[in-house]
């Protein structure tokens, strides 16, 4: 009888160790992906700064949407310093909304359109914006894997043992009114 109990307890300890380690792997993957988002946000700011300096030869940036970008970025930086994640996300998302408009701005100035540096920077901006959304996508995917795992039976029992360490990750998503706006969108012809 004792041998059976010992066997079962050894097996269950091994199972708990196995689950714990796989949860740690999944969690770290998700954390890594979330760091990637921050890296891309910084990169985007650098590219935008170069665009601003390239554009300033042709016009005062005060006249353009780039002015809004700069003020939004400083808002985001303030939010990071204050540890305010919600405001930071809001400011960065607002920049994302401005970026499609940059193309229109460049199109309006023939000098700008012909400038190879600006063409290169526009490609950089498109690419960085893509990288940003792909890293959000990747973060959401790895969060989904982790979140689904910790809710599954019997993994959730193991999670109960280490409650504080394994908390579900929040997904990156559009804000509610944003979604509403996109759902109600009607193409005007």
């Amino acid at each position: 009888m004792f041998e059976y109990l010992l066997g079962i307890s050894v097996l269950s300890v091994a199972y708990v160790i196995y689950i714990y380690n796989s949860l740690v792997n999944l969690r770290e993957a998700a954390i890594n992906d979330s760091k990637m988002i921050g890296v891309q946000l910084d990169r985007r700011w650098k590219v935008l700064q170069s665009l601003i300096s390239a554009v300033s030869k042709y016009m005062s940036y005060e006249e353009t949407v780039l002015k809004d970008v700069v003020s939004l970025r400083s808002q985001a930086e303030c939010a990071v310093e204050g540890g305010d994640q919600v405001n930071r996300v809001a400011a960065e998302n607002a920049i994302s909304k401005i970026i499609p408009g940059l193309n229109v701005m460049v199109e309006a100035y023939p000098d700008l359109k012909a400038n190879t540096t600006v063409i290169q920077l526009m490609e950089e901006i498109v690419s960085t914006e893509n990288k940003l959304s792909f890293s959000k996508q990747s973060y959401n995917d790895s969060s989904e894997r982790f979140n689904a795992k910790i809710l599954q039976f019997p993994v959730n029992l193991v999670v109960g043992l280490f409650g504080e360490q394994f908390k579900a990750f929040a997904y990156w998503q559009l804000e509610k009114d944003d979604e509403k706006e996109k759902e109600d969108f009607i193409a005007k012809l």
């Binding site: 990637m36 891309q40 190879t116 490609e123 690419s127 893509n130 990288k131 792909f134 890293s135 990747s138």
Partner: peptide, 19 residues
């Protein structure tokens, strides 16, 4: 080359998406 640079960017984007 702009096209080559774009190719590099695209590969980097997909690398990020695939993790």
């Amino acid at each position: 080359d702009l096209r080559a640079k774009q190719l590099y960017n695209i590969v980097e984007e997909m690398k990020i998406a695939a993790g």
